[in-house]
Computed example of a mutant assay.
Amino acid sequence: MSDTIDISIYNLALGFLLMAFPIVGFIYFRVKIIKDTLIAILRMIVQLSLIAVYLEYIFEWNNAWINSVWVIAMVMVGASTTIKRVGLHYRYFLLPFFIAGFTSIFIIDAFFFGLVIDLEYVFDARYFIPISGMVIGNALNHNIVGISHYFDKLDKEQDLYYFLLVNGSSKKKALEPFISASFQKALNPLIATMSVIGLISLPGMMTGQILGGSSPLVAIKYQILIMLAVFVGSTLNLMICILLANRQIFDSYGSIKPSILKKTK
């Protein structure tokens, strides 16, 4: 197969003309996210440009320690971003969310790189960094939805929680409706995405591999593994986040600490 067609800076700039459609829509419907959108796009351009330069050296060095530090930094950014977007207190939740992210990515990477793909060098930058990044990035999105829903529901429906406790339910049993709702809210979009892959959507990694010259069959096998890794990683991350967050939310008697549950402005 031929090499992937390069995109000139001029043609890349042309791609940004598509942004006219959402911006005009935002203006028409008075949706006040134009500034946030433009800032996000600018950050994306700067960050990806820096990453492109940095990864050239990362891939060349291919050092286990450097690659691990890079992934740990991604986990930390994911944890802090979740806290910021949900509106929680860094003091109480940064360490628990970091532990959740680190534990989930450690399990996923050890299983898929060491057992399934059976890499000779588990920390190979070509696999270790991009696949870990995809798992962490997807877990971040679902974490924000799930944790935000969990805190909102627990805050607004405290009476239900205490009602279940008073009527003989254990703390675990009383929290089941809240945890179940948060998992459904967070993971339903991912489940829907998996159910239509190949029918409606062709995922980014698979498309990228095909454009890069890989066999479609090889690309599909990797995409299946990636979707499994993303789903398991997102589920584990959210699960551990909630379990560790509960240690901060409740006192030793099972009562909710209002000062911790309340979100920051």
Rank of each mutant, 00 (worst) to 15 (best):
5 I>N: 14
5 I>M: 07
8 S>R: 07
8 S>N: 04
8 S>W: 05
9 I>G: 07
10 Y>R: 14
10 Y>M: 15
14 L>G: 12
17 L>N: 05
17 L>C: 10
19 M>S: 14
21 F>R: 09
22 P>L: 08
29 F>Q: 00
33 I>Q: 02
36 D>P: 01
42 L>M: 14
44 M>T: 04
46 V>D: 05
46 V>H: 04
48 L>A: 04
49 S>F: 12
49 S>T: 08
50 L>I: 03
50 L>A: 10
53 V>M: 12
54 Y>V: 07
59 F>Q: 06
59 F>P: 10
64 A>N: 12
67 N>D: 06
68 S>M: 05
70 W>S: 07
77 V>I: 13
77 V>H: 13
78 G>Y: 04
79 A>F: 00
79 A>E: 01
79 A>C: 03
81 T>N: 14
82 T>W: 12
86 V>E: 08
87 G>C: 07
88 L>E: 10
89 H>N: 14
92 Y>R: 05
101 G>A: 02
101 G>S: 02
104 S>Y: 02
105 I>L: 01
106 F>Q: 07
109 D>A: 15
114 G>E: 13
115 L>M: 08
116 V>Q: 02
117 I>L: 09
119 L>Y: 06
120 E>G: 13
122 V>Q: 13
124 D>W: 03
126 R>V: 07
127 Y>Q: 10
128 F>H: 08
131 I>F: 14
133 G>M: 02
134 M>C: 09
136 I>N: 01
139 A>H: 04
142 H>I: 08
147 I>M: 10
148 S>K: 03
149 H>D: 15
150 Y>W: 10
152 D>A: 10
153 K>Y: 12
154 L>E: 04
160 L>I: 11
168 G>I: 06
171 K>F: 01
171 K>H: 07
173 K>V: 01
174 A>V: 00
175 L>W: 00
181 A>N: 10
183 F>P: 00
190 L>C: 03
191 I>Y: 03
191 I>E: 06
193 T>C: 01
196 V>F: 04
200 I>G: 08
203 P>G: 11
203 P>T: 13
206 M>K: 08
208 G>A: 08
210 I>E: 01
211 L>F: 04
213 G>W: 14
213 G>Q: 05
214 S>M: 05
218 V>W: 04
219 A>G: 03
227 M>S: 05
233 G>D: 06
244 L>H: 09
246 N>M: 07
247 R>W: 01
249 I>W: 00
252 S>W: 02
256 I>F: 00
261 L>F: 06
264 T>S: 11
265 K>P: 09
